[in-house]
């Protein structure tokens, strides 16, 4: 099972980036093998608008089933929902911490966006 975590760097030891659409990297981690791919999100991060929509599409294309991040806006959330990807928000610490948290089962899936749309 693959989990996407927004990250400030390219390693499991990198800090989680609280932003979903505009995080510099998104790490897609296979939690069974701990193999991961660091997606360069810089193209979306610089988008004028719709960064979250693009990031959500990318995460879907990589086959992730869960997204772990800090904040997720309404358009990103709608896109992830359409892609049937679950969202865990308010995540902090390292990417590895986030994965551990998920494995321990102590996560709650959010049912709505927890950030306003950007204007």
């Amino acid at each position: 099972m693959k989990i996407a975590v927004t990250s400030q760097g390219k390693e499991l030891a990198s800090q989680v980036d609280p932003r979903f659409g505009r995080a510099p990297y998104i790490l897609v981690v296979d939690i069974d093998t701990m193999n991961f791919e660091a997606l360069d999100n810089s193209g979306n991060a610089g988008a004028f608008k719709g960064a979250g929509i693009q990031a959500a599409t990318m995460v879907h294309d990589k086959g992730a089933e869960v997204v772990m991040t800090g904040y997720c806006g309404p358009k990103a959330f709608a896109t992830l929902q359409a892609a049937e990807i679950k969202v865990v928000s308010d995540i902090a610490g390292t990417v590895a911490d986030a994965i551990e948290k998920f494995k321990s089962g102590s996560v709650t899936y959010t049912t709505s966006a927890n950030a306003d749309a950007h204007w």
Partner: peptide
């Protein structure tokens, strides 16, 4: 359609297409 849109008004997820008309 999503590829050509520089304003990200369309998202294609498999066969599902989302439209964000405000963008």
């Amino acid at each position: 359609c999503a590829e050509i849109c520089r304003f990200n008004a369309l998202a294609v997820l498999g066969k599902k297409v989302l439209v964000f008309p405000e963008l």
